[in-house]
Design a protein around this nucleic acid. Structure first.
Lengths: 157, 157
DNA sequence: CACGATTACTTACGCAGGCTAACTATATAG
DNA sequence: CTATATAGTTAGCCTGCGTAAGTAATCGTG
């Protein structure tokens, strides 16, 4: 299975470093924004867990996004400790924009390839993506378990 | 081609955020170290260009790596302005170590999948990787050209 | 119902890693 | 021999991540 691990590793590095400009948004920021777009307003804690970053990091990220006018916070009516992070209009617009640019960039690059390569890549990605999705979900759960165990130990000690 | 762009995008995010622990080395650091391992001692400028990072950023990265004892610098005998960055023994060791751990991690995760999925993923990755390599190379060259043009303009103005 | 524990989140601080602008030192062209 | 170009570094700024320690609200239990 080493070959798969290596291939995933290398491909991720290549795509990240050479194929995707981040256009002012970190990956975590983008992931949060699109998660909110898909799932509706979410709590900071939920976002932190979903993106596997610490709660304070998420807190800061939200503050930056707020400063940029991309999200707003709404008090959770059910729990005065909590808040919900929602997209603003410009947030939604930026997301759409970014998506368009990103596609454009990769589409341009793909146009430089022979048609066969494009077809190959399409097939390969369609096959690989669902599998990787499952892998990532498994990994996320495992990680959450680890954190839970660590907490339990700390509490016990 | 949008579907391909989206798939690359999503997969990269998933792998990066959930599948790969970075074990103390940033992606750029890892890329540099393994590049040096493959190609031998290199100049800071060459590394910066290869990894699409500014020269000062690379300079700092090299300093950090030096502090950690992973690389050493050798004066270039042909050009007293320049230096060559070489791997130390611990650098080589760390690289090997990291490689092993990374493989282990993904291998463990792959073991949770049905065998069919693993086979699918292997085929897909073997098909996709060379194409992505070519894409990345094209993108890197295009970027280098852009930089060159910008410089020429600045010089002309 | 009151008070300790838990939960949701923020603040404070430190480090990595990226950038640009401005510097030094060497090399090379005219 | 001077002017310019090139290789690197330094300085200063920002994001983005982490941990430790705080505040405020909620829950659970005697």
């Amino acid at each position: 299975m080493d070959d798969i691990a290596d291939a995933l590793d290398e491909m991720t590095g290549l795509v990240l470093r050479h194929l995707t400009g981040r256009e002012g948004l970190s990956m975590t920021a983008t992931a949060c924004l699109s998660r909110i777009q898909h799932e509706g307003p979410l709590r900071p804690t939920a976002l932190a867990a979903a993106e596997s970053v610490s709660q304070p990091s998420m807190s800061q990220l939200i503050q930056r996004l707020e400063r940029q006018g991309l999200v707003t916070r709404v008090d959770d009516p059910d729990d005065k400790r909590a808040s919900l992070v929602a997209l603003t209009g410009s947030g939604r617009a930026l997301l759409a924009d970014r998506h368009r640019n990103r596609r454009h960039r990769i589409t341009e690059l793909l146009a430089t390839l022979p048609a066969g390569d494009t077809a190959t890549l399409r097939l390969a990605m369609h096959a690989a993506l669902p599998v990787v999705r499952r892998l990532a979900e498994t990994a996320r759960e495992a990680r959450a378990d680890t954190v839970r165990e660590a907490k339990a130990e700390t509490a016990g000690a």
